[in-house]
Amino acid sequence: MTKFLLSVHVLAAIIAIGPVTVAASMFPAATRRAADAPSDAHARAVLATLHRICRVYATVGVVVPVFGLATAIGLGVLGDIWLIVSIGLTALAAALLILFVLPGQNALVAAPDGASAARLAMYTGMFNLLWATVTVLMIVRPGSTTGA
């Protein structure tokens, strides 16, 4: 059962979190293009599409920590420091996404502003860096006895 839970956890991370990181990373540049050409309907549509991708896949991404916790319980590693740090970083990444990235995107879809795109890019970069760190912790697992 643990292998199934781990498989769903990893697949969900790839399928759900991957699109959020890519679409969120593309959003600031698309915002600058839309701000530079206010009458360009295509540029506005791109913003709306990238924001929708982030919203939908962020919602689907809730599956990742749920199956991650189930996997950790099954493996008996819930108290390991690398997992506790990963959980904390995941919570921080989720908070950044919910409190700054998605609302920032929503505001910029309504009124594209190149200057505000820089702040959004910073929050997006922090979100992506946190996910990259969690991914490395999941692979390396400091102190693990598996030899990884």
Rank of each mutant, 00 (worst) to 15 (best):
residue 31 T to P: 03
residue 91 A to G: 13
residue 119 R to H: 04
residue 90 T to C: 03
residue 136 V to G: 07
residue 5 L to Y: 10
residue 95 A to M: 09
residue 86 S to D: 05
residue 125 G to A: 11
residue 47 L to E: 00
residue 73 I to M: 05
residue 46 V to G: 07
residue 74 G to M: 01
residue 1 M to W: 11
residue 126 M to T: 14
residue 110 A to C: 04
residue 56 V to Y: 12
residue 24 A to K: 05
residue 84 I to W: 04
residue 120 L to E: 02
residue 67 F to H: 02
residue 40 D to W: 02
residue 71 T to A: 14
residue 24 A to Y: 10
residue 132 A to E: 03
residue 16 A to K: 11
residue 95 A to D: 09
residue 40 D to R: 05
residue 14 I to P: 01
residue 94 A to L: 13
residue 16 A to L: 13
residue 116 S to P: 03
residue 4 F to I: 15
residue 91 A to K: 02
residue 4 F to E: 05
residue 133 T to E: 03
residue 132 A to H: 03
residue 42 H to W: 02
residue 116 S to E: 13
residue 72 A to E: 00
residue 110 A to I: 07
residue 31 T to H: 01
residue 111 A to L: 07
residue 51 H to N: 13
residue 73 I to Q: 04
residue 71 T to D: 00
residue 28 P to S: 09
residue 48 A to F: 02
residue 105 Q to R: 06
residue 72 A to G: 05
residue 8 V to R: 01
residue 147 G to E: 11
residue 83 L to K: 02
residue 64 V to W: 06
residue 21 T to L: 14
residue 89 L to I: 01
residue 94 A to C: 05
residue 30 A to G: 09
residue 27 F to E: 05
residue 60 V to T: 13
residue 23 A to D: 10
residue 20 V to G: 02
residue 59 T to D: 14
residue 105 Q to H: 08
residue 61 G to S: 08
residue 18 G to W: 06
residue 135 T to F: 14
residue 106 N to H: 15
residue 34 A to I: 09
residue 129 L to K: 00
residue 126 M to Q: 09
residue 28 P to C: 09
residue 58 A to T: 15
residue 99 L to R: 14
residue 37 A to D: 12
residue 37 A to N: 12
residue 130 L to A: 13
residue 90 T to K: 00
residue 35 A to G: 05
residue 14 I to V: 15
residue 15 I to K: 03
residue 110 A to D: 07
residue 1 M to V: 13
residue 33 R to C: 02
residue 22 V to F: 15
residue 60 V to M: 12
residue 107 A to W: 01
residue 72 A to R: 00
residue 43 A to Q: 00
residue 47 L to C: 10
residue 131 W to G: 08
residue 85 V to C: 02
residue 4 F to R: 08
residue 119 R to G: 15
residue 47 L to W: 03
residue 19 P to N: 12
residue 116 S to I: 01
residue 39 S to K: 09
residue 24 A to T: 10
residue 2 T to R: 07
residue 55 R to L: 14
residue 138 M to H: 07
residue 80 D to W: 00
residue 42 H to T: 14
residue 56 V to D: 08
residue 16 A to N: 12
residue 48 A to C: 04
residue 27 F to C: 09
residue 2 T to L: 14
residue 23 A to P: 07
residue 39 S to D: 15
residue 118 A to G: 10
residue 24 A to I: 11
residue 147 G to P: 08
residue 75 L to T: 05
residue 88 G to H: 11
residue 22 V to E: 12
residue 51 H to L: 09
residue 106 N to L: 11
residue 125 G to R: 02
residue 110 A to M: 06
residue 66 V to G: 01
residue 109 V to C: 10
residue 22 V to P: 08
residue 66 V to W: 09
residue 7 S to R: 04
residue 49 T to I: 00
residue 87 I to S: 04
residue 59 T to K: 12
residue 75 L to M: 01
residue 148 A to W: 13
residue 51 H to Q: 14
residue 98 I to T: 10
residue 144 S to R: 11
residue 86 S to T: 10
residue 139 I to T: 15
residue 120 L to D: 03
residue 9 H to I: 03
residue 34 A to N: 00
residue 107 A to R: 15
residue 48 A to W: 00
residue 35 A to W: 07
residue 28 P to W: 08
residue 112 P to E: 04
residue 126 M to P: 08
residue 121 A to Y: 04
residue 42 H to P: 04
residue 62 V to I: 15
residue 62 V to K: 06
residue 38 P to N: 04
residue 63 V to I: 14
residue 54 C to N: 15
